[in-house]
């Protein structure tokens, strides 16, 4: 019977998920590595070549200073990825620590954490993000910490809920009765269960982080104008879009959207793979 499952594109659902994930990861990794290693002269200022529309020499065209848009985009996206990655990691560590401790300690600490979560979620992300970024003196550090400090609440709530449920499960309570310590239970029972939720959480945090990083930069509160970043590029493009220089906004925009969507693909497929009930599909 398993033959019938093989009819669609010759693969079953689980293999397809793996393929989606690998393609997305490979693309993003390539952009990241290429962008980091890229020689800055590839997108150097060349006033002789300004505003060239997309062509064989410059596939994404050039901007008002004659910089090649393709290489600037790759470089910009890889900058965004670094900031997004760092911000997501910081964010998820905050979430893990707060989530587990709030569920394990409980009581007043739990209430305090929940209050922080509600406060952060009640304010619009962007406002808080601009505030934090501005206070920390803008630049890469400001944006990174700004994004990190605004994106932890959702994951915290997820982790906390998971831990609460585990803590009251019979096998965890039985473990205590067999004389096991809190540390043992946390490391052996609780932590391994939280890992899948946590991993998926991080990956799904990524696109948010990148979008917000670009948004803040676009609004001028983020990375400085001389850094090639998608937000900066889009912000500059706005000044020229009225004069018909469409390529300045279109390609960087598409690249940003592609990156965000790909992260989403990774996250969603990972979620389905790690979900035990996906064995039924």
């Amino acid at each position: 019977m398993s033959k019938r499952a093989l009819t669609f594109t010759g693969l079953n659902a689980r293999s397809r998920m793996i393929i989606y994930i690998s393609v997305a990861v490979v693309y993003l990794a390539c952009v990241f590595v290429w962008g980091t290693l890229l020689d800055p002269s590839a997108y150097a200022v060349r006033f002789a070549d300004k505003f060239i529309p997309p062509s064989a020499g410059h596939i994404f065209g050039t901007d008002f200073m004659g910089r090649d848009m393709f290489f600037r985009c790759v470089r910009g996206l890889s900058n965004s990825l670094v900031i997004g990655l760092a911000a997501s990691l910081i964010s998820s560590v905050i979430a893990l620590v707060f989530g587990i401790s709030s569920a394990v300690i409980g009581g007043k600490f739990d209430k305090a954490v929940l209050m922080c979560v509600d406060c952060c979620m009640g304010l619009p992300h962007l406002v808080l993000l601009i505030l934090i970024s501005f206070m920390l003196g803008r630049g890469a550090k400001g944006v990174m910490l700004g994004v990190a400090f605004t994106h932890w609440p959702e994951l915290t709530r997820l982790v906390r809920a998971e831990v609460l449920q585990l803590r009251s499960s019979q096998y965890v309570r039985a473990s205590y009765k067999m004389g096991k310590s809190r540390m043992y239970v946390a490391m052996r029972h609780i932590f391994p269960h939280v890992i899948p939720v946590y991993l998926v959480g991080i990956v799904l945090l990524f696109p948010h982080a990148i979008m917000h990083e670009s948004a803040v930069t676009f609004l001028g509160f983020g990375l400085p104008a001389e850094t090639p970043a998608i937000g900066v590029i889009l912000s500059e493009a706005m000044r020229h879009i009225a004069t018909g220089k469409w390529w300045l906004a279109l390609f960087p925009g598409l690249m940003l959207i592609a990156a965000v969507l790909l992260f989403d693909v990774i996250g969603e497929n990972l979620k389905r793979l790690l979900n035990p009930s996906s064995a039924q599909e």
């Binding site: 019979q170 096998y171 039985a174 009765k177 067999m178 004389g179």
Partner: peptide
Amino acid sequence: FCPVQMVYQHPEKA
């Protein structure tokens, strides 16, 4: 280790 141990109704939860 507690000298009083329990066996539950649903082994899959325990």
